[in-house]
Write a protein that binds this DNA or RNA. Structure first.
Lengths: 212, 212
DNA sequence: CAAGATATTGAACATGAGTTCAACCGATGA
DNA sequence: TCATCGGTTGAACTCATGTTCAATATCTTG
């Protein structure tokens, strides 16, 4: 790294890669597309990152650095309610890339999912004593399921937004409807009582049939 | 189509395609892999379906036919609780393919998502009067969100299973933990009370900040 | 200023994947 | 029996993509 331009080229390439990876998927994004978006030649992309996979790894590492950098600030921040909010917003700027990275597998995917799972678990550790969150019977499983559900919904952002009357989740018409509905789901559930839950618990207690 | 062998070749190719598409993703699956799995030559795949995309369309249509064929039976079946169960199980055999198809976009993805959303909505129409399901304040949004969450979790089957102590969702160690946790989530939610919900509703009622 | 290193390019290469095509069965029917 | 037609093959073609490489520009440094 000699002057500022070098970093800018690196950063432009990485930024273009994260953007396109997130929007189109990693496999569907070509080195030439990234190069064009960054305003450089395809050869330079390889020169700086070794390979397309190296570029992907660089994206993973850069994002993790960004996240862990803001993580400490989030945990040390204000009240527990804010902590819950921040835990969700922590990854939001990277949701597109995370979804693509995880859905296409690979090494980085595991680390990413694990990081999100741990942060969600932290959310319970803070939110339950504060009286904001119910205590799940299996907190590890609940953290995992929550991350999978949230991430999965992000992968289906387009479908979600289309059915909620917009183009993207962040559209002012879509976001309120999604937020309120998701929060309602996470507040009251969908079942009228615990009949189904007891039924499933009983079903798995003895024989192994099929469940939700 | 002259004898039964012709149909068998067609069906073998389609079956191999649905299997591989679901396991590896559509783009990641090659015509040669499908041909080998079906025990035929790559040329025959194109001969029968015109192109790889034609094969994908054929998979979509065949699956939709299968689903709509069993749909009537499910709706007309026994009690409301069973109806809820069947609504979930309806698509289960095709979850892998559906997840791949939707996550990689395309025409069929929209139809698929819409079909699942409608079936989920039907589930509410049956389950709410029967006293099994809570009535959501926005039933269309809730149906959409539920489909997105469920489908998304399926896309992340590998990650889910790994964190729950197995390889696949259907593993006898994984399935109970996932089912019980998901049902617990859908029964009690995760919030201790409706503070968060009221807060979000209020936040979106007047100014447009940022939410869940 | 000189020299070496680094950034950058653009063309070329190798590989893999979708597709085409001419030839080869194998059954069906006159 | 023989001709015809659809199923089937496997090799070849085309194209996109990741990657390499020699050449050039730009910058740092002694």
């Amino acid at each position: 790294m000699s002057s500022t331009d070098d970093l800018q080229a690196n950063a432009r390439i990485r930024g273009a890669a994260m953007d396109l990876f997130g929007k189109q998927g990693i496999r569907a994004t070509t080195v030439r597309q990234i190069a064009q978006a960054a305003g450089v030649s395809p050869g330079l992309v390889i020169h700086h990152f070794g390979s397309k996979d190296g570029l992907r790894r660089a994206c993973d590492e850069w994002m993790m650095a960004q996240i862990t950098a803001t993580k400490t600030a989030a945990v040390s921040g204000g009240g527990a309610m804010e902590a819950v909010f921040r835990a969700q917003n922590q990854f939001r700027p990277f949701y597109g890339y995370i979804a693509a990275s995880i859905s296409e597998g690979g090494e980085g995917a595991d680390r990413l999912f694990e990081a999100m799972r741990r942060l969600t678990r932290d959310m319970f550790d803070v939110g339950v004593p504060a009286g904001i969150l119910r205590e799940p019977s299996d907190i590890d499983a609940m953290s995992t399921v929550l991350v999978a559900l949230t991430l999965g919904a992000t992968m289906l952002e387009g479908q979600l937004a289309r059915h909620l009357g917009g183009e993207h989740l962040l559209d002012p018409e879509v976001m309120p409807r999604y937020s309120i509905t998701a929060t309602e789901l996470f507040t009251y559930g969908i079942f009228a009582d615990d009949t189904m839950l007891r039924q499933i618990q009983a079903a798995f207690a003895k024989p192994p049939p099929d469940g939700l």
